[in-house]
Write a protein that binds this DNA or RNA. Structure first.
Lengths: 204, 204
DNA sequence: GTCTATAGCGGGATAGAC
DNA sequence: GTCTATCCCGCTATAGAC
């Protein structure tokens, strides 16, 4: 029998409600109900709706960047790094499929949020410039085919993230249930890796 | 000197506000102000906020499907069709970059919307089953490499749509201005077509 | 068709007892 | 820490004069 932790319950409920309804559409009452807690109690733990929301979106952004950065650092070659990223990303997002659309949608409405809460972590780590440099270096060494680093990165991110962003559309369009969706996204790892190799592996 | 058309002004303003703030975040007052019209006048033309919103999202969905369907029907081969789609889509979305994130985000919050307003148009036209059939046929004839139709479609859609969905992220990440973004998205047409050919063109 | 004024209420936030 | 009651603002929507 575990001790009931109000703050944890609130965060869990808030996550669900904010992610499905968005910042403006979410109702504090609904979060409180879902956490089996009084609305006043919620304000006892989190001073304002905005503060609670910030906490949720920070957690979500953290979850995302935690999977990018480790896959991309180290001294493996580019193809290995991107394949590792594919594994990590699809696994994590399969467990949290609504995170990307939530982040992107909120970012669209408040672009400053990104600057403040997400970019700093990526910029500070210097992952991106290092990756660019490695791509250009491996090209000079003829280890991979020529491609603009921006296009390569955007292509891989597109292939990884979009299927989750568009989940509601394409599960309905392809008439998939939840189980089929998960299986499909697992197949998709191989598909994305195939494209990465097609793009980068030099012709023999 | 053109005649002032209130209804048109409202729709134009509503489009901007709904797309940037979302359905729940949008304020009727802001739409009215932007349309240089009285708030009561707005209710004269559109009975409720919801009705106005529905009109906006229907227009947006229409704009999207208008570009998919024509590129995919007819008797061209798959590669030509997908390359045509690439041209149409990136051109249209470059003019309306915030439409995809708007639609996807609202769809996520109200999945029923899709069933009602978008899917019917696509389902009725029978584009998707026909396309699937053509893909399988060309594979049997060894005109294209083997690939599951679902993965092919999802890959192409990812490559086309995601750069717009993630526009705020990657313009900031790659430190791009509006002009550079447009130029980059134009380059991207060639990049996407290259990937389509890599995926489908049989090795000689 | 256009405008002013206002109804009416949903929902964020707080007071204050226990 | 927990709860009830309530404040009060902002917002959708309407009434009604012109």
């Amino acid at each position: 029998m575990e001790k009931r932790d109000a703050e944890k319950d609130i965060l869990e409920a808030a996550k669900k409600v904010f992610i499905t309804k968005g910042s403006a559409g979410a109702r504090i009452q609904e979060i409180a109900d879902m956490a089996n807690i009084n609305k006043a109690m919620l304000y006892y733990y989190f001073k304002t709706k905005e503060q609670l929301f910030n906490r949720i979106i920070e957690d979500a952004a953290m979850l995302m960047s935690q999977n990018i950065i480790p896959a991309l650092i180290g001294d493996k070659n580019i193809i290995d790094k991107l394949e590792q990223l594919t594994e990590n990303y699809i696994d994590t997002l399969s467990e949290h499929p609504y995170i990307p659309i939530f982040i992107l949608s909120e970012l669209n409405q408040h672009p400053q949020t990104f600057q403040d809460k997400v970019q700093s972590r990526i910029t500070d780590s210097n992952v991106l410039p290092n990756l660019f440099q490695q791509i250009l270096l491996e090209q000079q060494q003829n280890k991979i085919k020529p491609i603009a680093p921006q296009h390569l990165i955007l292509t891989v991110m597109s292939l990884l993230v979009f299927p989750f962003v568009a989940k509601p559309i394409f599960t309905q369009l392809f008439k998939m249930g939840e189980t089929q969706y998960v299986r499909f996204m697992n197949e998709r790892k191989a598909e994305v890796k195939k494209i990465i190799r097609l793009l980068l592996k030099p012709n023999p």
